[in-house]
Design a protein around this nucleic acid. Structure first.
Lengths: 205, 205
DNA sequence: GGCCAATGTAGTCATTGACAACAAAGTAGA
DNA sequence: TCTACTTTGTTGTCAATGACTACATTGGCC
């Protein structure tokens, strides 16, 4: 009857994996610690040994999400003929991840925004901005973009792509295909930065 | 002892008001139907007469949020010296609303993104885009912006401002003031649209 | 071999959302 | 005015949940 050993062996990983599946299927609200325990054939108290409480589990899911997303973005940043291509590819990678994992993205950001989120989570979640900042600075030096504070410009690109990602994930880009919106957004950003953004010029060193 | 009449009289309004307060204080997760009933001195079953279930209450909160936000945006669209001013003012109004009601904004959009959201909610939530579209078309006719599909461009502006709003509401614009990010974002968008967005030109009538 | 921390089990508790049966109050027509 | 009928609110109940505790099993380490 009980061909299961007393110790699961990889409970933490099994819980994390199943939690991500559940979240993608039913959202965070559909996640129940007790149901999760049932799913992996373990008693309802077992998860507490690996995650202090439900929020700790969700935090771990969010962290794993950021890590896999960052990998995709890093890859995209290195593929492309010129700087503009690479910039567009990063945007696409971000939004595509969002479209493929909409519920996970929601968890990732709502968790990061949580007042007592961990430093690790916040640092991991901010890597995309740093990447954008480096690309913009490089393009400015190459003369492809007008001068301007890279930090501010990177933030502008990040918030814009973030909005695209969230709305695309929610299927809210009514009347436009997701690809069109991504391309139009990155086009607009690049064109704006190329012609010069007044608000980014005022920063004094 | 019981100086309260059997019928509350304005239970629905009282519940809605208190629910919005609770959400702003503790987020959606902090909202409990039973606690809500206690807060307005009513039995735990009473709310069901006005809201079928918890989601129906949250939907009503979201709708009220969109309505008050739309009012602010409409006002902003009519104040400004020129078209560019009005455009920037709309963006500011949107983001300011988000910063002042961060939890409410989250509820508004997560509810709108919900697969079975009401038509009324979706229509109300989309008014901002239509406004942006009209302003862009007007600016193109006036020669202030380059030609391009207003629908696509409006979507670009909307997603960008939406991202700004969400991140500003979450206090995630590290290192930059919210005002700077708003200004830089609207500047970038306007500059991009003025110099021409390739992806928005390809649309054939 | 025996101690001991880590891991999992079983039982319990307060809280929650939903539901049903009942009570009170307003309403409309004879 | 009397009387159905509807709306609104109350009370009791149910299963599910998250968190906590005491206890059992396991495997590593000296």
């Amino acid at each position: 009857m009980t061909d299961q050993p007393y110790h699961h062996g990889k409970l933490r990983e099994a819980l994390l994996e199943r939690a991500m599946e559940t979240i993608e299927e039913a959202g965070v609200d559909g996640l129940s610690l007790r149901q999760l325990a049932r799913d992996v054939n373990v008693s309802h108290g077992a998860p507490a040994k690996h995650f202090r409480d439900k929020q700790a589990l969700i935090d771990a899911v969010a962290l794993a999400g950021f890590e896999s997303m960052n990998r995709l973005i890093q890859d995209a940043a290195q593929s492309g003929e010129d700087l503009r291509d690479r910039f567009v590819n990063v945007g696409k990678a971000y939004v595509h991840f969002a479209v493929e994992h909409p519920a996970l993205l929601t968890v990732m950001y709502s968790t990061k925004h949580h007042p007592d989120s961990s430093d690790e989570l916040r640092n991991t979640g901010v890597q995309g901005i740093h990447l954008a900042q480096a690309m913009i600075a490089e393009a400015q030096e190459a003369g492809a973009l007008a001068a301007g504070n890279p930090e501010t410009l990177a933030m502008v690109c990040f918030v814009s792509l973030h909005g695209t990602a969230l709305l695309a994930a929610g299927g809210q880009v009514d009347g436009n295909s997701v690809e069109d919106v991504i391309t139009a957004t990155t086009d607009t950003l690049w064109a704006g930065m190329a012609s010069g953004v007044p608000a980014a010029q005022l920063q004094l060193p």
